[in-house]
Design a protein around this nucleic acid. Sequence first.
RNA 1: GGGCGGAUAGCUCAGUUGGGAGAGCGCAGCCCUUACAAGGCUGAGGUCACAGGUUCGAGCCCUGUUCCGCCUACCA
Length: 853
Amino acid sequence: MGHALNTILQDILTRWKRMLGYKVLWLPGTDHAGIATQNVVEKQLANEGINRHQIGRNAFIKRVWTWKAEYGGKIIHQLKSLGASCDWSRERFTLDEGLSKAVKEVFVRLYEEGLIYRDNRLINWCSRCNTALSDLEVEHEELEGKLTYIKYPLTTPVPPLSKGRYITVATTRPETMLGDTAVAVHPDDERYKEFIGKTIALPLTKRTIPIISDYTVDPSFGTGALKVTPAHDFNDEAMAKRQNPPLEFITVIGSDGRMTVNAGDRYAGLDRFDCRKLVLEDLKKLNLIEKEEAYKHAVGHCYRCKTITEPLLTLQWYVNVQSMAKDAVRVVKEGKIKIFPNSWENTYYGWMENIQDWCISRQIWWGHRIPVWYCQKMQNETCKEKNGIIVSRDTPHACPYCGSEKLIQDEDVLDTWFSSALWPFSTLGWPDETDDLKTFYPTSVLVTGFDIIFFWVARMIMMGLKFMKDVPFRDVYIHALVRDIKGQKMSKSKGNVIDPLIMIDKYGTDAFRFTLAAFAAQGRDIKFSENRVEGYRHFVNKLWNAARFIMINSEIQNPKSKIILSLPSKWILSRLASTVDDVNNALEEYRFNDAANSIYQFIWHEFCDWYLEMAKTEIQTSEGDSGVRWCLLYTLDASLRILHPFMPFVTEELWQKIKNHSSAVNSQQKKIEDSIMISDYPRSLQRDYMAEKDMSYIIDAVNGIRNIRGELNISPSLKLNALVKTFSTTGEKILSENLQYIKDITRTDKLDIGMHVEKPECSATSVKSSMEIYVPLKGVLNIETEIDRLNKDKEKIEESLEFLNKKLFNEDFLKKAPVEVVEKEKTKYNELMNIKAKIIESLKILKNMEVNK
RNA sequence: GGGCGGAUAGCUCAGUUGGGAGAGCGCAGCCCUUACAAGGCUGAGGUCACAGGUUCGAGCCCUGUUCCGCCUACCA
């Protein structure tokens, strides 16, 4: 559903701008989703009882390509089902030759600038996927765990002992104690000061570890003493490196999630969680467990397979992103990139300002292999200096330093997001200077979900600025997350996933698209409800029937004579103009829901409910060359074009059908073979405020008669006599001129229009088959209610003024009250006087207008 | 720990410089009126989470509270 929403919004923008006459490129494609894809294919292999190592790297990659061909095709099929009007001839894939070339180019350039480096440090590791993960690829989840207090015996008892012969530490991961290389306390902690520098006999091992001091230890947490496991904890790693001399790193958990030989014979080979149990048992036997507490804490999980990640000491490639991140923040702050809704900007800054270097190597096979080779010989000094590392765009045949031909390429591949980050320019031919780049870079807009702001958006901005010297896109529209009707995230395990293709089968693509667009309010998640789709399917049907009616009744018999427009026709054209403005303005600001609702309101409740009904009168009473036929076709044609970006299929179908009609009345129409998707999008049509105001009398009269009918339960089939009285001379004139419309729509036999000399108290009376109604002035420019409202405001203000007046002329008050209070009251008084003056002025203008009418 | 968002009709949600509380669905009543019963017309239903404040005037601005959701983080 997220992808569907994403696609639909982009397609709306694409079709809209294309119809407005812009040269629009919407380039489709997919990334290779390294870890996820590899996992899927590995599962396939597992079902066959084999693993990737048995078939080897090349054969494995071949299998993934087969899988990719199938599922990549499915994705494209889904896009097309949604009506996505991409340029399919330009479809790209991150592992394409061109994009791979860009990846290598970027890697080499960043390496040469010193921004890509290799380092041996702790990194989040997924033991199931058997690869390193970036910080972003680790999801933290609160889990109920246990905080275990373990007693560590001192080797050198210090008299007088405040806490016996032990120091107690608290941990959530007891198995890591096998890799402890120190116990740390805060240097100012009185309880432990005397122990600093002493040693401890680490239980279950033969090792002795020191007690050290470090300022980051929180004396209030646990016992105030911290076990230090540099090889399996990020804090401890930093602490170990701070110490002089640095603490030893002892890796006790391996890349497979099992204990290493360093853990000792008893534990080596055990799964890390089994080992935890055994360690606890053993400690209990030795009576070294002081207590256990329930404890909630965040645990990292692999974002692809949900396995608990493990900090592991490994050699990986990193990108130093510090300076790029600063640039990326700057362009947003300067407004060169605008984020909609802008509330996401803070989130963006927050992350970018605390960004860590990006680990880009992955120990999998599906992806861009790192363009690094290692010299196996290292025969001279230069070669040794460089650690035998050769970074190259092309496969080298010999070591450039020592000439050895024994080279081995790095086994790892790059993080998928590394190649995705280049997408805005790699897909347009970079590093070559292509015409496409000149034409389409920077792009106008990126539409995406918030979940990949950091994975993708931020990195595209960094890379775009770095290599194109310009932003990759000017606007970023962050769309909502599509949830189920209860507001839960859709997931396979919950079974609440809704398949867009099923919605499309059931309700049609147009209704489905319109629903998501109408739901897409900024800054709010979408709770998807199926009955809303059903409602919009009705809308499609309504449109279809309206078009049918118009085609039946709009055969142009005599198009030569000039067009004379009735009041309803002028009115609907003005309403159309208003809608066109609303829609264009809304889309300009990515308010898809406002645009959709505005069109819906216009077509159903103005065009169909009112204009089509009134058109019937005119069709019956007028000749074939009446303006109404032209206006029906014109409005339908324009409506279809406004609606097209939202509902491409039904609008195209209807537009093709009415083209014969409309081309007869509209010389600007394109040729028969043209498609609505390249017709002109309506913009800036002429409003007719007078017609809108005049029409409001008719609407009020009709509504008045209908209300009485409805309230008094008079059957619609019963024809009756009515007297409509109005307070204004204009009203009387308009109603009299348009009597027949009102009679037809309200099914009245005899309709009289009269004047009220004064505004009557009651609005309607009815005696069996006749009624009398008063038509109040509603709608645009309603002068009377405006006068009423202003009068009320004036009264209120006068009350306040009177009150203040008394205060300000009260000598007691003036003497006792502090100067600033008096001043404040005076200012208030003056403000109110100003407001009053403005109101009086407005009232004068309004009264004049009414008299002139 | 830090940050963000939400609370409006039975349900799903709009409400853009503070001035009329709205839509769709659902519900009730009437209607097969020659585009449409997947429809038309009419109606019922809301102390806009709670408490204060600013303002002539607050769903909207400010402060606090409660509940829900999310993002982020190396809290042993």
